[in-house]
Nucleic acid binder design. Structure first.
Length: 420
RNA sequence: CGGGAUGUGGUGUAACGGUAACAUACGCGAUUCGGGUUCGCGUGACUCCGGGUUCGAAUCCCGGCAUCCCGACCA
C-alpha cells in the first residue's frame, strides 16, 4: 500500500487524556481512534493487526477441533433469565435497550447462555459430542471504570470458544489441548516469553481455572511466578495450601504485576443444568453436558504486545501481526523521478512475492519519515535513496534490533523470511 | 459506585478577575534534502454545557457532562 493513500498521520504528541502507553502509541501512530472512555475504533493500520491476530487464533482453534460460528450481539431477556443473569442486581454491566414492541434486549457481555441455548437444539445423543464451537465477536460491558487504554474496554472484540463434552474425562482432554493452543498463540504474537500459565480461582466445578498472564506494569493482576517452571499463581488463590498442592516452593515464587491475556475455565454443568442441556449416553440414560469456556480479548492482546515490545521510539511489532512486513521508504524530492521509479520497482517485486509492503511515497524529509517509521513499528525498513541507487543497493534496518545493513535488492525476500 | 484531579484552535500547552498567547499541524512562498531543516505570510477557539457573582469571568461560585488517576466491582 502506498502511504500517500493512508489518511492517518503520525503525531508527535499523544492526546493528554491517554496515560497508558499502549493507547498513546497506537493513537500517535494512527492504529486506533478513541471514541469515548473504553471504546476505540480500529483505523486501517489497526485493523490489519487485528485481522492478523484473529487469523492466528483461528488457526489454533481450528487445529484443536474448534468450529467457527457467530452468535448474535442482541440477546433476549428470557434466555438469560434461565441462569438468573438478566437481573441488574446480579449482573450490573449489561448494556440494555428496548425493542419497538416493548421487549427488552441486552448487548451480549459473554456467550455461555447464547451457546447453551443454541446447542440445546442440536445435542441429543452422545454421538453429537464432543463439539467445540467458537466465535469472534464484539462484546459490551458497561464497566463502571474502564482503564489502561485498550486493555479494558466497554466494547471489545474477543474470541470465545465453548466446549461441550460427555463427561469430565473427555472435557479434560480438550482442556489440556486448549492450554497448548493458547501457549502457541501467545508465542506466535511475540509475548510467549513473558506469559505465564497461572492458576486462578476455579468456581464451583473445579479447584482452579487457568489464566495466561503476561508480565507488564500495565496489568491489573498480581501473580506469583515460579521462575524455574514458569508457572504462576494468581494472588486471589495464593496461600500455603495451594502452593503445596502445586508442588511449588514459597521461597522461589516472585510477585509480579501482570495482565490476563487469556483464560480457560471448566464450567461443569453450571450452564447445561439451567438449560437442561442433556444427551443420551450409550445406555439410553440422560446426562448433562460438561462445558468449558476459553476466551481471549484481541484488543487487550494487541495492547499487551505494544506494552511489552515497544521502545522509546515507538511500537515494535513481531512480523506475525505487523500491519506490513516491510516499510519501503523512498528518499526522493519532487524532482527525483528516478528514485521514485526505483522504489516503485522494488515495491512491485516484493508485492508480487506476497510480501506486504507499506511504501512511503510521500514527499517528506528523511528525518520525519524515519521517525514515523520507527513509531509505526513495521519489522523491516528498506530505504531507496540517491546514494543507494548509485551503489545499486538497498539499505535495510531491522526495527526490533536497530541493525542496519546494505544489501542487494534480490536478498530482501529471504531477509524478510528470517525476521521474527 | 466512593475519593481525587482536569476540561482553552485538529493536537500539545500558556494567560493576576481586565484585548485569549505560543508551539505543532494545516495552506501559500522561499530555503533545505539520510534522523521530526530554516525563514516569511496566512487560515484556524462563543475557553465542555447551563446558571450565578462582578462594571468586567478562560480565571471565582453552584449544577451538569466528559476525561484521567486511586479504590470497589470484574463471565
Amino acid at each position: 500500500m502506498r502511504q500517500s493513500q493512508l489518511f492517518t498521520k503520525a503525531r508527535k504528541e499523544a492526546p493528554s487524556d491517554e496515560v497508558a502507553k499502549n493507547a498513546q502509541l497506537l493513537i500517535r501512530a494512527g492504529f486506533i481512534y478513541k471514541e469515548m472512555a473504553g471504546v476505540y475504533s480500529f483505523l486501517p493500520l489497526g485493523l490489519r493487526v487485528l485481522n492478523k491476530v484473529e487469523d492466528i487464533i483461528r488457526r489454533e482453534m481450528n487445529e484443536a477441533g474448534g468450529i467457527e460460528m457467530r452468535t448474535a450481539v442482541l440477546q433476549s431477556k428470557d434466555v438469560w433469565e434461565k441462569t438468573n443473569r438478566w437481573d441488574d442486581e446480579v449482573v450490573d454491566n449489561w448494556f440494555k435497550t428496548k425493542l419497538k414492541n416493548g421487549g427488552e434486549v441486552g448487548l451480549s457481555f459473554t456467550n455461555e447462555e447464547a451457546y447453551s441455548n443454541i446447542l440445546k437444539q442440536y445435542i441429543s445423543s452422545y454421538k453429537d459430542l464432543p463439539i467445540y464451537p467458537y466465535d469472534f465477536k464484539s462484546i459490551f460491558r458497561n464497566e463502571s471504570r474502564s482503564k489502561s487504554g485498550i486493555m479494558r474496554g466497554r466494547e471489545f472484540y474477543w474470541k470465545a470458544l465453548y466446549s461441550f463434552s460427555q463427561d469430565e474425562a473427555e472435557h479434560e482432554v480438550f482442556y489440556e489441548k486448549m492450554k497448548t493452543a493458547y501457549r502457541n498463540i501467545f508465542d506466535a504474537v511475540g509475548i510467549g516469553h513473558v506469559t505465564h500459565l497461572t492458576f486462578a480461582s476455579g468456581g464451583t466445578f473445579s479447584k482452579f481455572s487457568h489464566e495466561f498472564q503476561t508480565v507488564t506494569d500495565a496489568g491489573e493482576d498480581s501473580i506469583y511466578i515460579d521462575e524455574k517452571s514458569g508457572i504462576a499463581i494468581n494472588k486471589e488463590v495464593y496461600n500455603d495450601e495451594v502452593i503445596a498442592d502445586l508442588g511449588l516452593n514459597k521461597e522461589s515464587l516472585v510477585e509480579k504485576t501482570a495482565v490476563e491475556v487469556g483464560n480457560v475455565f471448566s464450567l461443569g454443568t453450571k450452564f447445561s443444568a439451567p438449560f437442561d442441556l442433556k444427551y443420551k449416553d450409550k445406555n439410553g440414560e440422560e446426562k448433562l453436558v460438561v462445558m468449558g469456556s476459553y476466551g481471549i480479548g484481541l484488543g487487550r492482546l494487541i495492547g499487551t504486545v505494544v506494552e511489552v515490545l515497544s521502545d522509546d521510539k515507538g511500537i515494535v511489532w513481531p512480523k506475525s501481526i505487523a500491519p506490513f512486513a516491510v516499510h519501503l521508504v523512498e528518499l526522493a524530492g519532487a524532482d527525483d523521478a528516478d528514485i521514485h521509479a526505483e522504489a516503485e520497482k522494488l515495491y512491485g517485486e516484493l508485492t508480487r512475492k506476497g510480501i506486504e509492503v507499506l511504501w512511503d511515497d510521500r514527499d517528506l524529509r528523511a528525518g520525519e519519515k524515519f521517525a514515523e517509521s520507527d513509531l509505526m513499528g513495521i519489522p523491516l525498513r528498506a530505504v531507496i535513496s540517491k546514494k543507494m541507487i548509485e551503489e545499486g543497493k538497498v539499505e535495510i534496518k531491522i526495527r526490533a534490533t536497530g541493525e542496519v545493513r546494505i544489501v542487494d535488492r534480490a536478498d530482501i525476500p529471504s531477509i524478510v523470511d528470517k525476521i521474527n
